[in-house]
Design a protein around this nucleic acid. Structure first.
Lengths: 223, 223
DNA sequence: TCCAATATAATTGTATACACTTACTCATAC
DNA sequence: GTATGAGTAAGTGTATACAATTATATTGGA
C-alpha cells in the first residue's frame, strides 16, 4: 500500500486514511448512502481497524458520513445542492474574511501571497492545471489565515475541501485559468494596497464567478 | 462513573466522552494550551483509551484541540475573540438560513416551532433558565433543519455549541429572558406568516441583541 | 409457501497489548 | 556550573482480542 510512502510527512495513519476517504467521498468514489465497513477498508489499505475507525469518526463530525449506532456509517456525499449552498455561505463569510485579512495581514503573508500569485502566472502559461489548483487553494488559505480568526479559517478551509471536486472541474474549463489568474491579480493588488473595499469586491467577484462557472459545470455533468 | 447511566440513550462511549470533553473545554474546565493525556482521561472516566482517543480525534476536527503528532493534543479553548468572530459569521449565515427556512419549512416543523415557543413562555414565567436555554437551542435548531441544507445546519449547529457558555451567561442577565421571549415571538410570527423579510429581520435583530448582550458579559467577566 | 424461531455469521464497540516516539533523569566529562 | 548522552519512564500510535449487537441463514411447523 502506497499509503506508507507518505508517512515521511509525519502524518499518522489515521490522518492519511481520513484524507483518503474524504477525497473518495468528495470525488464520488464512495457513492451516497453506501455503507462503509471498517474491516473492509482496513484490509484494502493493509492496516488494522483502529486508524480506520478513528478516521471514520472524524468524517462523521465533518458530516461526510452518518453514524447509526451499532450498525455502522453510511456515506453522505456532497450533492450539487450542497455545493451550491456552500458557495452561498462561503460568499457571505469571505466578505468578512476580506476585511479582517486586509487589516491584519502581516508583511510575510503578503509576500507569500505575492509569491503564490507569481507561481500561478508561471503555471498558467504552462497550463499545469494540477499545480494551479493547488496554488489556488493555498492562495485563499493564506488569506484565511491572515484573518487571525481561528474559526473563520476553519470554516472556510473546510468549505474549500467540500467544493474541491467542483472547483477542479471548473478550473479545467476553457479559458477559466486565465480568467481566474486575472481575478487573483485583482485580489492581490487590493491586499498590497490594503484597500478593504477593493479586496472585498475582488474576492466576492472571484467567488461569484467561480460559483457561476461551477454551476454551469454541475448542470452539464448531472444531465 | 455516571457516564454509564446515560448509555440508555443509545450513545456510544466515544460520543459521550466527546460531548463531555467538549463541554469541559467550552466551559473552561480544561484551560487553554493545557495538554490532554489520553490515559489520564480514560482512567478518570473509568474506560479504556480507545473511546477517549476517538473522542479526541473528533475534537481535533472541531478545532477544539490541536494535535501534535506523537506528542499529544493541547486544548484550544474558545476565546472571547473567537466568540465575537463566531457571532459575526453566524449573523451572516443566519440571514441566509432565514430565507431558506421560511420557504422550505414544513407544517410539522412549524408546529414544533410553535410548541417550543409556548414552552418557552411557560418556563419564562417560571424563570427556569436551564429549560429556557435548552428550548432556545432547539428553537434555532428547528429553523436550521428547515433550511434543508445539510451544511448550513451543520455549521450553525456547531456555532451554537461553541458560543454555548456565553449564551448561557447572557440569558442569565436581568431581564434578558423576557426580551429573548419577545424576540422569539417575532421570529415565530414571521415564520407563521411565511414572511421572509420579517423573519430575516427578526432573526438578525435577535442575534445582534444576543451578541451585544454577550459582549457586555464578556467584558465584565474578563475584567 | 410462508412465517417464526433460532442458530450462525458479520460487524461494531471496547479493552488490552505491544511498538514506537518523545520526555525526563541523572551521571559523566569538560 | 553546564553540556552531553545513556538509560528509563511516560505517552502516543497501531494491532489484536474479545464482547455486544445486528444481520443473515436455516430449520421446523402451520
Amino acid at each position: 500500500m502506497d499509503l506508507f510512502d507518505q508517512k515521511k510527512e509525519n502524518k499518522s495513519l489515521t490522518t492519511l486514511i481520513f484524507e483518503k476517504i474524504r477525497e473518495d467521498i468528495i470525488n464520488d468514489v464512495y457513492k451516497n448512502d453506501e455503507k462503509i465497513i471498517e474491516a473492509k477498508v482496513a484490509e484494502e489499505m493493509g492496516v488494522s481497524r483502529t486508524p480506520v475507525r478513528e478516521a471514520i469518526k472524524q468524517l462523521e463530525l465533518d458530516g461526510l458520513v452518518e453514524n447509526i449506532p451499532n450498525r455502522g456509517v453510511i456515506v453522505k456525499g456532497v450533492t450539487p445542492q450542497d455545493i451550491e449552498d456552500i458557495y452561498t455561505m462561503r460568499l457571505a463569510i469571505e466578505g468578512i474574511a476580506a476585511k479582517w485579512s486586509v487589516e491584519r495581514m502581516s508583511e510575510d503573508s503578503l509576500k507569500d501571497l505575492k509569491d503564490i500569485y507569481e507561481l500561478m502566472e508561471f503555471y498558467t502559461v504552462k497550463k499545469d492545471i494540477e499545480k494551479i489548483f493547488e496554488l489556488n487553494t493555498r492562495f485563499h488559505e493564506v488569506i484565511y489565515k491572515a484573518s487571525s480568526s481561528h474559526y473563520l479559517e476553519h470554516v472556510l478551509t473546510d468549505f474549500q475541501q467540500f467544493i474541491k471536486s467542483t472547483r477542479k472541474i471548473s478550473l479545467a474549463t476553457e479559458g477559466r485559468v486565465e480568467e481566474a489568474l486575472k481575478e487573483h491579480k485583482k485580489i492581490l493588488d487590493a491586499f498590497l494596497a490594503k484597500d478593504i473595499k477593493a479586496a472585498t469586491d475582488a474576492l466576492v467577484y472571484h467567488i461569484e464567478h467561480s460559483k457561476c462557472n461551477a454551476g454551469k459545470m454541475i448542470e452539464r455533468t448531472t444531465k
